[in-house]
Write a protein that binds this DNA or RNA. Structure first.
Length: 431
DNA sequence: ATCGTGTTCCCGTGCGGC
DNA sequence: GGCCGCCGCACGGGAACA
């Protein structure tokens, strides 16, 4: 037996018993949610992205502005439009496609629904964002059933039950992959989209895993893909054929070992059912690139607004943090970040603004600014009184001490409404 | 004018304490 | 005192992902 502690959860893994892990991925999630409300658009190329006041559909070709495609229906994908593509480029490819603005509140609502529906059947669930989850099915008895001559009949029946339940709760389809670990389950869920149910077992790897491009491995993005390909590793099989020693030589101990394991379908990571946030941030891309001096007032106002929203997020979720950071993206797409850590967590909005201003002083502002962001990390909970033994973990001594009568500790329940704050008149954007 | 928003993880560097 | 190695921490950047 091996025990792994992770994010406060003790996960127990038996070395001998093979695990059964599922990855569930909602099909074209945002687009599918929109089609629930606009069934007359079914069958048409539809793209979700951007935002505008009236939420009416537009012709993609009529769009002018910044933004990316968050999701495209399969009809739009057939025209070459994909997630992450700039909207202007998508408009050139598919001018007649329909464009709808994003509505995160609605997506979050449906996200909760499909997760709840799943949870009733498979309670060991790891949340991986708005539209995907991992499930550890190992402990569910029925997966071990043999149905007729089908060794995996129990798994199929269970997963089909989950898919049906998700559809009943939301009207949405999903694709599910099942394998011995998260790495392969993720690969499997992608093998037969949409509405797929795919088992990927060890004996399937040579035929179904090794032919795939290295970029299909979760964790190998565009940069690593290009590098691997340039070194002659185009497919997962190319990597699997290389020795551990060779990969370590070429990519370092840590990454080499990881690539070797991944190529052979080995992955120990447990399905983690609870976790704590690490940071909160808010950022915005401007309609036009702003000049650090000429547009100083606009930038100052934007920073104020971002900090207010971030502070509201923190209060609503019951966190504060010791680290305040900023992020800037310039007109040449270069990105810089700065952060600073205090002995104590920020107590009020002005502390966030003060930290952000300190960070800004350390940035060379000689280009126009495209994006501005604010971040708080080094989090501690504020809504419950944390026992001192736990609170002392971060930095012993002063961090938990609060002078009597100092800024009131936030209490559980709805966050107090934000007081209007004095506008900063000091120059935040100096040159 | 193609490239958003929010989050996490990893690594290198620099520095102080021991 | 200088130097070394080790460690942990802060910081900045990069990469990846939903």
């Amino acid at each position: 037996m091996r025990y792994q502690a992770q994010a406060g959860t003790i996960v127990c893994m038996s070395r001998d018993m093979a695990r059964l892990v599922a990855h569930l991925d909602m099909d074209a999630f945002y687009a599918s949610v929109e089609l629930l409300r606009r069934p007359e658009l079914r069958g048409q190329p539809v793209v979700i992205g951007g935002a505008w006041p009236d939420r009416h559909a537009r012709r993609l070709g009529d769009y002018a502005g910044r933004g990316v495609v968050t999701t495209a229906t399969y009809e739009a994908r057939a025209l070459g439009v994909h997630s992450g593509m700039g909207l202007m480029k998508a408009a050139a490819l598919a001018p007649h496609a329909l464009l709808l603005p994003v509505d995160f509140d609605e997506y979050r609502r449906l996200s909760r629904s499909f997760k709840q529906a799943t949870l009733r059947i498979a309670p060991h669930m790891e949340d991986r964002g708005i539209d995907e989850i991992y499930l550890d099915l190992t402990q569910i008895d029925s997966v071990h059933d043999t149905v007729g001559h089908d060794r995996w009949g129990g798994v199929r029946a269970l997963v089909q039950e989950i898919k049906n339940s998700v559809f009943a709760a939301t009207g949405l389809r999903c694709s599910v992959g099942v394998a011995a670990n998260k790495l392969l389950a993720k690969i499997a869920s992608d093998l037969d989209k949409p509405d797929g149910l795919t088992l990927l077992m060890p004996e399937d790897l040579p035929l179904r895993y090794w032919p795939l491009a290295v970029g299909r491995i979760h964790g190998v993005g565009p940069k690593s893909s290009a590098r691997l390909e340039q070194m002659g590793y185009r497919t997962v099989g190319d990597l699997a054929a290389a020795s551990l020693a060779t990969l370590c030589e070429r990519f370092g101990e840590s990454q080499g070992q990881w690539l070797h394991d991944a190529a052979h379908g080995r992955d120990d990571r447990p399905v983690v059912t609870s976790s704590e946030p690490v940071s909160f941030s808010r950022e915005t891309t401007f309609e036009r690139d702003l000049h650090p001096r000429q547009d100083r007032l606009l930038l100052t106002a934007a920073l104020q607004r971002l900090a207010e929203r971030l502070w509201a997020d923190l209060q609503r979720r019951g966190y504060s943090g010791r680290t305040v950071g900023i992020k800037l993206r310039f007109d040449d797409f270069r990105t810089v970040t700065r952060d600073t850590t205090q002995d104590e967590v920020v107590q009020q909005l002005d502390d966030v603004l003060h930290g952000a201003r300190e960070c800004l002083k350390r940035v060379n502002l000689s280009r126009r600014i495209r994006l501005l962001g604010v971040r708080v990390a080094g989090l501690q909970r504020t809504d419950v009184d944390v026992p001192s033994t736990v609170a002392a973990q971060g930095r012993p001594g002063r961090s938990q001490r609060r002078a009597p009568g100092a800024a009131p500790t936030r209490t559980a329940g709805p966050a107090p409404t934000e007081q209007p704050t004095a506008q900063y008149t000091l120059p935040l954007f100096n040159d």
